[in-house]
């Protein structure tokens, strides 16, 4: 077996390539996980009884729900950061 320090340049390039590809897939998986979580929350807020089609009102509610949830996350993160910074000094 090769020892770790005489890996060829092409093997190093291949490893770097693989790492980059996996990071991309990881990002996609993270996106999907976030979508599952949003759908879970916004389904409860927006869908009463599932009909034969999502009506316009429900669609708008879902869109607003996602946008406002993200706004809430940002607002809380900012405010919390400020609180921590203030108490730190």
């Amino acid at each position: 077996m090769d020892s770790y320090d005489n890996i060829s340049a092409s093997e190093k390039a291949e490893a770097a390539d693989l790492q980059r590809l996996i990071a991309t897939e990881q990002q996609k998986a993270q996106f999907q996980a976030q979508v599952h979580s949003f759908t879970d929350i916004c389904w409860d807020k927006c869908v009463d009884s599932p009909g034969s089609k999502l009506d316009y009102r429900t669609e708008t509610c879902l869109v607003n729900c996602v946008e406002r949830f993200i706004d809430t996350t940002l607002t809380i993160t900012n405010r919390f950061t400020q609180m921590v910074q203030k108490s730190g000094h």
Binding site: F31, Q32, Q34, V35, H36, F38, T39, C42, W43, C46, V47, P50, G51, S52, L54, T58, E59, L62, V63, V66, E67, I70
Partner: peptide, 18 residues
């Protein structure tokens, strides 16, 4: 019906988030 609407919702959420 619920399954179909859940998947519709998933897709709307995915588009919005993206």
């Amino acid at each position: 019906m619920c399954m179909d609407r859940y998947m519709d919702s998933w897709n709307i959420v995915s588009r919005t988030y993206n």
